[in-house]
Nucleic acid binder design. Structure first.
Length: 326
RNA sequence: GCCUUGGUAGCUCAGAUGGUAGAGCAGUAGACUGAAAAUCUACGUGUCGGUGGUUCGAUUCCGCCCCAAGGCA
């Protein structure tokens, strides 16, 4: 019975504040599908306002998975995401529904849809900490990179000396396993895990997008974002931890600490968000699987949602042999 | 009205004892293997406020004017 169902994986991607949530909800309703969040920060519990986590009202009855499932006090990795997403997608399919990934974290999309066999070693705080400490010293970055060139020339060639974070991870893998990174992930990104991906990208004129971002940040502040950050801090979430590196949270944390005032933090948050949106566009624009929809081209109400739906339906039909029609 | 200090890249400012200038930030483009809202890379010609003068040559020195901040009246 399940075999008569299309097994497509749909994804709605795009920069922050482009309206992915609304578009995905409309799509899910029309297809009877379920949404799977693909966002590295909405994954955390109690981080609602500043991550623009969809509220129950916004979800409008469409099930949304992987929202607020992680403790903001503990690190969460891409590998963790893939594990959760795989399970969630399998579950949705088992119930005969279509999964719709929705979010702006490009690496997460690749982790789910491309063959990216991460090295089997998880992050090791001790090893990592030592290497980072080493990098901080005079000429430390150069030394680390040189050492990487010895044990893993392939990665060293790929990585810039200043990209300490990645150099450290490559060395960490080598130290923990005695093998260079490439040996852990043969055919990296070369194969598709999800050949039936249907990806739609939402875009709009840069200046328009930036306006939306600025307005949304202001609205979040008015909605009590600062209090949310104060609560997280009071709740013991480590201030230097991963979750608190999220845009806005880090800036508002310094307001909570009294190091700066809200009036100065807001423009800084808007700016950081705009820069982030740009990076997202760079990422998704270069993914040939993404089919783009510009909001400006569908000014009539509902037309944009209709266009996405039409595109997705067409591609679902194309991948479903006619014999499986029920 | 007078005095002082400024007026140099979108912003904050360096600088040249006269040979037409450079950083940070912003912006744009790019990368992306267990932190990814993270991390990293590349890209800097602008009437050096205006106008006369001195000079082979002035944005740099001199005069006048305009603007800003401060001070004195």
């Amino acid at each position: 019975m399940q075999s008569t169902r299309p097994s497509a994986l749909i994804a709605v991607v795009g920069p922050t504040a482009s309206g992915k949530t609304d578009a995905a909800v409309a799509l899910c309703r029309a297809l009877g599908a379920e949404a799977v969040s693909m966002d590295s920060m909405q994954i955390y519990r109690s981080m609602d306002i500043g991550t623009a986590k969809p509220s129950p009202e916004e979800c409008a009855g469409v099930p949304h998975h992987l929202l607020g499932i992680a403790d903001p006090g503990v690190p969460f990795s891409v590998a963790d995401y893939r594990e959760r997403a795989d399970a969630t997608i399998a579950d949705i399919r088992a119930r005969g529904k279509l999964p719709v990934l929705v979010g702006g974290t490009g690496l997460y999309l690749n982790a789910v849809t491309l063959e990216m066999n991460f090295a089997t070693v998880a992050a090791d705080e001790a090893v990592r900490g030592r290497l980072e400490e080493e990098a901080r010293g005079e000429g430390g970055k150069e030394r680390l990179h040189a050492r990487l060139a010895q044990v893993d020339p392939e990665s060293a060639k790929r990585l810039h000396v200043n990209d300490v974070r990645r150099v450290v991870r490559a060395l960490e893998i080598y130290q923990l396993t005695g093998k260079p990174m490439a040996d852990h992930a043969a055919n990296f990104r070369a194969q598709l895990r999800e050949p039936l991906l249907i990806a739609v990208g939402i875009t709009l004129e840069r200046s328009k997008l930036y306006e939306r971002i600025d307005a949304r940040v202001s609205a979040m502040i008015e909605a009590g974002w600062l209090d949310e950050v104060a609560r997280l801090r009071d709740g013991g979430v480590p201030e230097e931890g991963q979750a608190m590196q999220a845009i806005g949270y880090r800036e508002l944390l310094s307001v909570v600490r009294g190091e700066t005032i809200l009036k100065n933090a807001v423009p800084a948050i808007q700016q950081a968000t705009r820069q982030y949106a740009k990076r997202q566009l760079t990422w998704f624009r270069h993914d040939p699987r993404v089919h783009w929809f510009d909001r400006a081209e569908y000014p009539e109400p509902g037309a944009f949602d209709q266009a996405l739906l039409a595109y997705v339906r067409l591609h679902i039909a194309a991948q479903t042999p006619s014999t499986t029609e029920d």
